[in-house]
Design a protein around this nucleic acid. Structure first.
Lengths: 200, 200
DNA sequence: ATCCATACCAAGCAAGTGCTTGGTAGGGTA
DNA sequence: TACCCTACCAAGCACTTGCTTGGTATGGAT
């Protein structure tokens, strides 16, 4: 019978391999990363990966779905909070930059591969998550306009796209442990987004 | 001896094949597009591509370098113009959205593949172009702050990244011929960037 | 001592990859 | 007529790809 330690160590090895794979997928792209790349980086043979995982696809599947479950948990907390519209918008931005800080590989994979992977039935949930994310931001922006916190003449759809794009694309240059903290980047970004860069 | 018509028709076929390749590279990625994909889309055999081009790499090379030559020509015009700092910043944003409108495949390829291709000596110019682009925006932002057109407390480096990212990432969703014109998108974007989305 | 699950290796297969080769149809040139 | 250039085809080569197979070492449970 498997003890708790066995499962933990088995889970650890799985998690370790997934983490290595995530780094490679993020850096080189999913299709451009071979199972031999992952195996080499893990110090094992390529065939040995198939003891832990069904396929290369199932690896990226597990990486993405696990991450998204956590991220959308955070969004749900914001939507159900009692904070004001502006505070909730700020919180959503901060949470997103936190995600980039803590799960940059996962964010990068989602940004780079969602289009390609979305073509497979198995990854249909990626499109659903996209729609869910859009709903979150549109809600926050609508509430902001209705409450008077945001300009009434905003093009909500375009504003949503600009926010989404600017937030997530930061994964291309943000590096945890550098001089910029994710909180600082979020602050600066919110300053630009809310007040603009123009003088006065 | 080759007549002018021969060269034109030869050039046309080349350009046609390059355009088809650019569409596929943009849609599926460079590595993920096979020479057979390009050949099929062109209605010829894969081997026949090698009558026109040395390699798959040389195709994407020609696509990217041609586009960048044109784009940076536009940036140079802005830098040498006599307009004020704010007008030049607006013009740079507009020119960039025009590029997305007219050369979305090329922009998409550059956005998606610059990291991967940049690893090859042949594509070292991509990094140079990136530095050149950064110099353009930093100059415009510096001039803006010095002239008083932009806030004095701006984090120039972060602002540059936000502008660059937001402008170019629009290639992921902008489609020419849709309800949104590139000029409208540029206007809305500048409105957000310069004045912010906050009320008052 | 026996058993068994975990984690791995060594070898290789079928499909797909970029690219090469030898050849041909057709239209202009000398 | 003889020649040549452009644009292509048909076939295939060397290599890489994801994945499979049959086996082994290790360590804990019975």
């Amino acid at each position: 019978m498997a003890t708790r330690e066995d499962e933990a160590s088995a889970g650890n090895r799985r998690a370790e391999l997934l983490s290595i794979a995530a780094g490679l997928f993020a850096e080189k792209g999913f299709k451009n990363t071979t199972v031999r790349d992952i195996a080499d980086a893990s110090g094992i043979q390529s065939g040995s990966l198939y003891h832990h995982f069904d396929s290369k696809e199932s690896m990226v599947d597990e990486i993405l779905s696990t991450f998204q479950e956590e991220l959308f948990g955070s969004y749900d907390e914001i939507l159900t909070s009692t904070d004001g519209p502006r505070a909730r918008l700020e919180r959503a931005v901060q949470v997103s930059f936190e995600a980039i800080d803590r799960h940059r590989h996962e964010v990068a994979i989602f940004q780079n591969e969602a289009d390609y992977l979305g073509g497979f039935e198995r990854f249909a949930y990626l499109a659903e998550r996209n729609a869910q994310s859009r709903a979150v931001w549109i809600t926050l922006l609508d509430d902001g306009v209705r409450s008077g916190a945001l300009r009434a003449d905003l093009d909500i759809e375009l504003t949503y796209r600009f926010i989404r794009d600017t937030v997530w694309v930061a994964v291309k240059w943000y590096r945890p442990g550098g001089t910029l903290t994710h909180a600082h980047v979020a602050d600066q970004y919110l300053h630009i987004l809310l007040d603009g860069i123009s003088h006065g």
